[in-house]
């Protein structure tokens, strides 16, 4: 929303909407919608057993698996993984296992206050 309106009507920052509600596009990820806190189980990969078949990369609806081409290993994005476990289900060599999120120290992205 243009500066003039915001000042004139004293619109707080979190309610400011750009002209026509048109947003600049994101480039790498959409930080406005962190979904890692949905997860109750976490996919954990055994890099030794991984054959880099890329199934986890291809089948993740949230684009949380990628190939690190330099290191030749899969990397996982904890901020957005919802814990659906499609990756575990589709792994042909069973190198991804589901681990309870509570096993991890500070693993779950918690909300600051309850709803």
């Amino acid at each position: 929303m243009s500066k003039k309106y915001c000042e004139k009507f004293n619109i707080p920052k979190h309610l400011q909407v750009p002209l026509g509600a048109v947003l600049p596009a994101n480039k790498k990820e959409n930080k406005g919608m962190i979904t890692g806190n949905w997860r109750t189980v976490r996919p954990v990969i055994d890099h030794e057993a991984c054959t880099l078949c890329l199934n986890c990369f291809l089948f993740c609806p949230d684009a949380t698996w990628h190939l690190d081409e330099k290191e030749e290993k899969m990397v996982w994005n904890a901020d957005y993984c919802k814990g659906c476990l499609i990756c575990e289900n589709e792994c042909p060599v069973d190198c991804i296992s589901a681990v309870n999120e509570l096993e991890f120290k500070g693993g779950v992205v918690r909300l600051e206050k309850p709803f």
Partner: peptide
């Protein structure tokens, strides 16, 4: 690139 007409709060 822009996004036109997203859902809002």
């Amino acid at each position: 690139p822009v996004s036109h007409g997203p859902q809002i709060f």
